[in-house]
């Protein structure tokens, strides 16, 4: 399965320590320096007015990064948009690495003093209802690959609503 439209969300452990719009100048700074390898960073979009939405969005050609508030939890959400070369496992690895890289960069931003991400809890999401519909078949197929790739101790499928994207919450030791 050449699934590459994969999203990874890492949650902020101390959301009270930051204001959402503080990420705007940070992301603009990333564009100036093109800080994410393998990504053409393009623009910043402010969705802070939308309830539990994409928050502050950093648009790149290959995939988007956002300080996302979906589900009422602030986190860095990276989702791949353009094809990757590998199969699902390699693609998941690549997407996860990019998300972790972005988190590390954010934690080191002086303007976001004290921001911390929880790397033990990861939301993995497939953003492709054709290749990975939210059903038992796709769940069974992807679950072991995700477990193998991310080293889980617990892996919980999220919403069973077939309209929603297939997603798993992975808790690592």
């Amino acid at each position: 399965m050449d699934l590459y439209k994969i999203g990874i969300k890492l949650f902020v452990t101390n959301p009270q320590a930051v204001r959402l719009r503080d990420f705007i100048p940070v992301f603009h700074g990333w564009i100036q320096q093109q800080k994410i390898a393998g990504h053409q960073l393009i623009d910043v979009h402010d969705y802070s007015h939308v309830h539990n939405g994409p928050g502050i969005l950093l648009v790149a050609h290959e995939g988007n990064f956002s300080m996302d508030q979906e589900g009422g939890r602030l986190g860095l959400f990276y989702y791949r948009k353009r094809p990757l070369e590998g199969g699902f496992e390699a693609n998941l690895k690549s997407v996860t690495q990019t998300a972790l890289q972005a988190c590390t960069l954010l934690e080191s931003e002086p303007k976001l003093d004290g921001l911390k991400f929880n790397t033990k809890e990861i939301l993995v999401l497939t953003n492709d209802r054709l290749l990975a519909p939210n059903d038992a078949g796709a769940r069974t197929k992807l679950e072991p690959v995700i477990a193998r790739t991310l080293g889980k101790t617990a892996l919980a499928p999220q919403s069973a609503d077939p309209r929603e994207r297939l997603a798993f919450m992975v808790t690592r030791s």
Binding site: K5, H45, Y47, V50, G53, P54, L57, V59, N64, S66, E70, N127, D128, R129, R165
Partner: peptide, 8 residues
């Protein structure tokens, strides 16, 4: 919107 855009 989710799969091709920015969920907005």
């Amino acid at each position: 919107a989710e799969e091709y855009s920015d969920s907005i």
